[in-house]
Every structure is written in structure tokens, then in C-alpha cells.
Design a binder for these strands. Sequence first.
DNA 1: CTTAAAATGTTATATTATAACATTACAATA
DNA 2: TATTGTAATGTTATAATATAACATTTTAAG
Lengths: 134, 134
Amino acid sequence: MALASVNLTKNQKTVLDILENSSEPLKAYTILFDIQKKGIKSPLQVYRALDKLIEIGKVHKIESRNSYVACKHEGCNAKTSTSFLICENCDSVTELTGNNLISYFSKQAEKNNFNYKKHNLEIFGLCENCKLKN
Amino acid sequence: MALASVNLTKNQKTVLDILENSSEPLKAYTILFDIQKKGIKSPLQVYRALDKLIEIGKVHKIESRNSYVACKHEGCNAKTSTSFLICENCDSVTELTGNNLISYFSKQAEKNNFNYKKHNLEIFGLCENCKLKN
DNA sequence: CTTAAAATGTTATATTATAACATTACAATA
DNA sequence: TATTGTAATGTTATAATATAACATTTTAAG
């Protein structure tokens, strides 16, 4: 079986590759336009690759921006939950890790008799670089 | 000046009214179809009303669902930040309030030298009713 | 009243995402 | 290796979500 990445297909590898080499989140149609040389011609091919990559946790979607970002954490367990710091100035994105968020949210949910399963968290503000510049 | 709601225009009132009387979040085009009798004919009229209502904090957007929900908290200060519990079974939505989340996120952000401004949080799972049924 | 800002009405179009269906690749196993 | 079932692909069309542009009207403040 080996690592999930070993099993990626051509289209999936192509899409993951462009995301991993991007310094910022990309939109589906941006990905499409950037890789039309590599045989991917239709939106659906991009979306299907993204779906799979998200499913195995190699890519996360940033909901508020309709953008996609490659996960940098080897063996990231965020197949479902994601937590991001998003810079409003330069659009850079940092992923928060660690389970302390999950246990915190579980408790918050419990107070409302709600059974926690997963979450999306997007924190907006200024990254270190942009803080210094302003 | 008085309360923000006093200053709402006809279209804004119409859109807010349908959201406040809905038991669940609504999509923009659902709102449009539901209120065409009241003189709203184009998507833009709905989106403009929504933009304004979001700006004054009477409505929040649920990013992962492209849906909109009326805020039930009198004088809600969540003009920008939002925190929701979303039931995966029945799609009901509960808004979390209180500033403890904000101070928690500020600290998490600071650990990454990130200057917190606002956030969107969406927690998915089972609401109290659906927990009991399953 | 006047005037400036905000909201409206309308048409067109941009952006994001999925449906449907025929075909191909591929791994498990009989 | 032949079979077979699952996943992935390729392709066309279309659905769903959201904004641009611009002329006009309403509104509230001075």
C-alpha cells in the first residue's frame, strides 16, 4: 500500500504539484489555466483531482476564498478539520496544527449539547511580515 | 439615528424578514425565488441587501455552505467574526457567542506571530435532537 | 430646497462547481 | 492470464453562485 502519494494518478499529481509549488492558495480555474499544457482541459478534471487530494488530506480548501492549498504537514491528520491563519494584507496562509483546538472545540460544542465531529477555522489578520511593514 | 434595523430599506427588510422567519440558513437564490412576489427581481438586489445586512451584523454568511442566516442576538457584535455549530444531519445552525473564543484565537495567533483581527469558525457534528435519534 | 450619498432597477457577464455518459486504466483474484 | 469490478478519465453541457456597469431614484442632512 505505502504512502498515499505513491498512488496518485497523473492528473492528481499534476494538480498537487502546482499547489505544492505555489506560495499561496490557488483557485480551481487558476490551476486549470496554469496546467493546460499538461493535458488537463476541463474544470472537471481539476475538481476531481482536488476532491481526491482533499479526501486523502494532501490538500485543504479555504472556504471563504474558494481557494485550495497543499498541506505541508507530513501525514497531516486534517483530512476533515482545518485551521488557518490568513493574512488580509498579503493573502499568505499558515495552517495551525495540534489537537488542542479540537479538544477546545469539543468542549465548546458540548456546552451546547452538540456532538463535535470536525471543524473549519479561518483566522484573519496580519502575518509577521505585514505586521512589521505597517 | 436609533437602531440599525430602523434604517433598513425596503429590499433589506424583505430579505432580513425571510431570513428571520427561516428555521435554517438560506441560499441567495432561494431567497430570490421566495420573494419575487415582493418586487425583487434580480440576484443583485438580493446580494446587495445581504451585503448591507452582513455589514451591520444582522446577517452572517456560512462560508462552507454559501448560505446566509439571520443573527438572533440583539446587538450582536459579530459584525465580522462568526462561530457556528452546524448539524450534519439536519443542517440546523447555532451561533456561538461570547468573547472567550476571540481571546483564545488571539493567543493561538500570537504564538505564530500573527495579529488577530477576526475569524470564521464552523464546527460540524450532531445537534442535540439528531444525537438522540441516532 | 439643494445636494451628496446611498440604494435601486436592469441587463449582461464573470466565477465557481456539478451532471451525465461513454471510455479507459488498473489492481485483485479466480 | 483472463476476468471483473472499481476508480479515474475525457468531454460536452449546464447549474449554481456572484459581480460589473450604468442609468435612475430615494433618502437624509444641511
